[in-house]
Design a protein around this nucleic acid. Structure first.
Lengths: 130, 130
DNA sequence: ATAATGGTTAAAGTAAACTCTAAGTCAAGT
DNA sequence: ACTTGACTTAGAGTTTACTTTAACCATTAT
């Protein structure tokens, strides 16, 4: 069982954000006698999954939708499947764009490096002339 | 030479967004006698590059910074190189996260499909019992 | 002639995702 | 006894990146 502060530390987000996610029904921890939030290991796993979805650009509303379907049990499996398949498509598009842009940057970076080298040569020649 | 509307069509963003990018000093088109924006082929190429940076999660402020360095000419090459190298690193991190999450989703999707198949079997068995 | 189309501006409004503030409770340490 | 630190709430504020509005001008089609 983790407190909100411990979870925040463990996953690298703020306690504010954790409370915000709760308000958005994305993660609903237990409470102790004093009304304080208590996160179990499985809450932590779920949270880590949520953060992976977030890092791969799934909007909070979609994540909330998935979380909601989860609470509704077995007969939402088809909907959950569709949601994950849609997100997988989105990831594949992102992979494509990132791959292309990575190549573009490689080229630009190479040509910048060449420019710097040539400018360096000139500087050296210049200094020799002095 | 393209009008703002033509450029908007060509790259798939709104004229509003193009004016916003101009206000942010990201793209500064020419003007005709009537004060209307005129975009050249090279404006268009630059814009397409900007959109690739945006699609790969570079914030507008960074893009503006790169655009600013560009206008300052040759002696900003080292700074521009650094900026692009930093972005390349960011892209590589994204590629890693996306790849991992893609695999996770593959597993989840497979197990959801199995659940649906099994539930389907039961339904069939159930209907046969009637 | 007039209405539609496409351009102009400055400025206000919006959506998403936090992030912070204020005002409070509670338990432990000095 | 009192301060420190971690928790609580409701609600206000912030940032980013647009997006819309209002009020206007110029060209083209009916």
């Amino acid at each position: 069982m983790y407190t909100i502060g411990e979870v925040a530390q463990l996953v690298g987000i703020s306690t504010h954000t954790l409370r915000y996610y709760e308000k958005e029904n994305i993660i609903l921890p237990d409470r102790n006698e004093r009304g304080e939030r208590k996160y179990t290991e499985s809450h932590l796993q779920w949270l880590k999954f949520v953060l992976k979805l977030k890092e791969t650009q799934m909007p909070i509303t979609k994540i909330r939708e998935y979380a909601y379907l989860f609470t509704k049990g077995e007969n939402t499996v088809i909907d959950r499947l569709k949601l994950l398949e849609d997100h997988k498509s989105s990831i594949e598009i992102q992979l494509k764009t990132l791959g292309e842009t990575n190549k573009m940057l490689e080229h630009k970076i190479t040509s910048y490096k060449e420019m710097i080298l040539k400018r360096g040569d000139e500087a050296v020649t210049g200094s020799r002339r002095q």
